[in-house]
């Protein structure tokens, strides 16, 4: 097994006729993801990347049985695309879009009913279950099938971690980028819950960064419920307070959200916390060897 995406995934790409949309839809399909449909309002009836295009997500679901959405639209339209996916009852909808207004995310999260569609992102690399399916923009070839779950707020830093694992022959069950924005659909704890319940995931790498309290909440969950080894790294140990480090959510305010505080919380929850980003793979190797 894996989490979020796998052999059962039937993908619909929202914005499939755009340059980015077509490019990434093709890359996901070429990786082995079961791409079944595209959605672009006004372009229903056309074909793109070898699949039918529909005007609405609801129609795509009805005609193709799509269950996972991938949103590739500009920032002003992202929340609406998420909301449409929620309304159509997809299991999961992922967006990589950077620059979505926070207020849009606040409102769209309010539309998700309990047990409804899981939103991943925005401003994240997406999710991949190596060898099965990828719904995202990450380079598939650096991944390797295996049993380490990876969850991260970052994009390229996640690739770095995966690369270090694969280089050592350590494969991954599922790698999830949750995104660097202040309000996101899926938090660390949500993904850790999935990893905790997944028999195929034996250990977890958690990559956090400064700002907010999501890593502290993750630490609390790990201490209470996760009986699997966790290796963690927090980016931004050298970041000055009060400055936003690229990601809209990466800011230390009033002594809250510091790397030191997060590292301490994770350490006291039993995680192996590495200071250097070059040590993530080696630390996992050591934990797996026991």
């Amino acid at each position: 097994m894996s989490v979020l995406v796998g052999n059962e995934t039937r993908l619909v790409v929202q914005g499939i006729t755009g340059r980015e949309g077509a490019f990434h839809a093709e890359a996901c399909r070429d990786y082995g993801t079961n791409l079944v449909a595209g959605v672009v309002p006004g372009k229903g009836g056309q074909t793109a990347v070898g699949v039918p295009v529909f005007d609405t997500v609801a129609e795509a679901v009805e005609k193709t049985g799509a269950n996972v959405g991938f949103v590739l639209v500009p920032p002003p339209f992202c929340a609406d695309a998420y909301a449409e996916a929620v309304d159509a009852g997809l299991d999961l909808v992922v967006s990589i879009t950077e620059g979505v207004p926070t207020r849009d995310m606040v409102r769209v999260m309010r539309t998700v009913p309990p047990g409804g569609t899981r939103i991943l992102g925005p401003n994240c690399p997406g999710v991949i279950s190596p060898g099965k399916a990828k719904v995202g923009i990450m380079p598939g070839f650096i991944h390797k099938e295996g049993h380490v779950g990876v969850v991260s707020r970052s994009g390229t830093l996640t690739y770095e971690a995966v690369h270090q694992l694969s280089e050592r022959g350590i494969g991954q069950s599922t790698c999830v980028g949750i995104g660097g924005d202040p309000v996101i659909g899926t938090q660390f704890v949500d993904v850790l819950e999935l990893f905790a319940a997944d028999d195929d995931t034996e250990a977890v790498i958690l990559i956090g960064e400064i700002g907010g309290g999501a890593e502290e909440e993750a630490a609390e969950f790990i201490r209470r419920e996760l009986r699997k080894p966790v290796v963690a790294f927090i980016a931004g140990q050298t970041a000055p307070p009060g400055r936003r480090m690229g990601h809209a959510g990466a800011i230390v305010m009033g002594g809250q959200g510091t790397a030191a505080g997060k590292m301490e919380a994770l350490r006291s929850a039993g995680c192996t916390v590495v200071e250097s980003p070059a040590e993530m793979g080696a630390a996992m190797e050591a934990r797996l060897r026991g």
Partner: peptide, 24 residues
């Protein structure tokens, strides 16, 4: 660096090695 997380991590490793980053 490409990517915000990797850029922060790069600053961190520079500092750990005993040098000091001029920027993000």
């Amino acid at each position: 660096v490409n990517g915000a997380g990797l850029a922060m991590a790069t600053m961190d490793i520079v500092k750990l090695a005993g040098a000091s980053p001029a920027n993000f």
